[in-house]
Amino acid sequence: MSLGSSDRPLCEAYGLGLLDLDGVVYVGDEAVPGAVEALSTARGAGMNLAFLTNNASRTAGDVAAHLRELEIEADDADVVTAAEAVAHLVSDAVPVGSPVLLIGGEGLRVPLEERGLRCVTSLDDHPVAVVQGFHPDLGWRSLAEAAYAIESGLPWFASNIDMTIPTARGIAPGNGSLVQAVRNATGATPMVAGKPERALFDEALERMAAERPLMVGDRLDTDIDGAINAGLDSLAVLSGVNTLQDVMGLVASRRPTFVARDLSALVTAHPDVIVDGMTAECGAATAHAEGAVIGLGQGEPGSLEAIRAVVTLAWSLFDRYGRGVRLDGTLES
C-alpha cells in the first residue's frame, strides 16, 4: 500500500474529520502550533469536525470547554470520549439501574450515569460489572478493588488501553499501564471501547451524519490501526507520539492513507509521488536511498512534499526488499 494523493485539500475531499485530541489538537493546556487556524479553515471549507479521545479523565463538556478556550469551535456533542463509548457497551450488557464498580473519575462517572447506571466504589456494594478509565489520581486501593471484583467473576470493561499519554512535560503512563496492573493481578482481559477497537468509532459515526470520514491521529497503534479496523481513511500527523521513522517502518496492512507534520495537512492538496528505483519525487522535494538509509536531496525539511517523498520511498523499498530503512538526519522527524 502506498500513500494516497488528493488534488484538492483534504477538508474538501472528505466530509467529516474525526480528530484525536492529545498530540493532534493540543498537548496539555496548549494548542499544537497551527491547529486552531487549520481547523477553522477546514470547517469554513465545509468539513464537519468531531473530536475523539481515548482519555476518560474529563467529560465531553469539559473537553469542549477546553477547545473553546483555545478558540476552537466545539459543542459538547462534537466531542466523543472513550468513556462514552464504554458506557454504551456496559449499558448494552447489564440492566438499567445496575450498580457498576467505577475505577476512574468524573469523566467516566458522568456517561455511566447518563446511561442509567449506578456507580459504586466497593465490591461490598454488589456491582455487576467493573468499568475502568484513566484518571491522574487513580491509586492502588482502587486498582486493588478492581482486582478483587474481577477475581469474583465480574465482567471487566476498560475505556482504552493506551500504554502512554502525551503531556506538556513529556510522555506519561496512560490507562493501558493501569489496566495492565489489574491484568497482572487477575490474569483477566477487559472488553475495550477506545481506539483501536471499533466502539469509539461507531459511537462517533452514529452521532455525526456525514459522508467520507477521515480519521486524524498521532498514534499508529490506536488512531491509525483503529481507522483501519473501522474501514476508514486516515491521516497520521507527527505532532504527538509517533515519529516519521515509526511511519516509515510500517507493514502494508498498518499504513495510513496520508502522512503529514501537523493539522495544516487538512487544508492543502497532497500531490502524487513518483518513485524511480532508489529515488522518489514529490513536487519540489526529492528523497534518495543509499542502502538502508534515506536522505532528502531537495526540498524543505518537514514540508508535506518532503515527508511524502520519504515515506513513499521507504514503503517502496520495504515492500521490495522486506526490510526497513532509516533517515540520515536531513529530514526532521
Results as ranks from 00 to 15, higher is better:
Met1Ile: 12
Leu3Ser: 01
Pro9Cys: 00
Pro9His: 05
Ala13Ser: 14
Gly15Val: 09
Leu16Ala: 08
Leu21Ser: 01
Val24Ala: 04
Gly34Cys: 00
Ala42Pro: 00
Ala42His: 00
Gly44Asp: 05
Ala45Ser: 15
Gly46His: 04
Ala64Met: 00
Ala65Arg: 10
His66Ser: 13
Asp75His: 14
Asp76Asn: 10
Asp78Cys: 03
Val79Thr: 00
Val86Tyr: 01
Leu89Asp: 15
Ala93Gln: 05
Ala93Glu: 08
Pro95Cys: 03
Pro95Met: 05
Val96Gly: 11
Pro99Glu: 11
Glu106Lys: 12
Glu106Cys: 02
Arg115Ser: 13
Cys119Leu: 12
Ser122Lys: 14
His126Val: 11
Ala129Trp: 07
Trp140Glu: 02
Trp140Ala: 02
Ser142Asn: 12
Tyr148Ser: 08
Pro155Ile: 10
Ala158Thr: 08
Ile161Asp: 04
Asp162Phe: 03
Met163Trp: 06
Arg169Phe: 04
Ala172Met: 14
Ala181Thr: 13
Arg183Glu: 07
Thr186Asn: 06
Thr186Phe: 08
Met191His: 13
Met191Asn: 08
Ala193Pro: 09
Lys195Asp: 04
Phe201Gln: 02
Phe201Ile: 14
Glu206Arg: 12
Arg207His: 08
Pro213Glu: 14
Gly226Glu: 10
Ala227Ile: 12
Ala230Gln: 07
Leu238Phe: 09
Val241Cys: 01
Asn242Ala: 12
Asp246Cys: 02
Met248Phe: 04
Ala252Cys: 06
Ala252Trp: 10
Pro256Asp: 11
Leu266Phe: 09
Pro271Ile: 06
Ile274Arg: 15
Asp276Ile: 05
Asp276Trp: 01
Gly277Cys: 06
Met278Phe: 06
Ala280Ile: 11
Ala284Phe: 10
Thr286Lys: 15
Ile294Met: 03
Gln298Cys: 04
Glu300Met: 12
Glu300Arg: 13
Ile307Gly: 03
Arg308Trp: 03
Ala309Phe: 03
Val311Tyr: 03
Ala314Glu: 12
Phe318Glu: 06
Asp319Lys: 07
Arg320Asp: 10
Gly322Asp: 13
Gly324Met: 09
Gly324Leu: 05
Arg326Val: 05
Leu331Gln: 15
Glu332Phe: 03
Glu332Asn: 07
Ser333Asp: 15
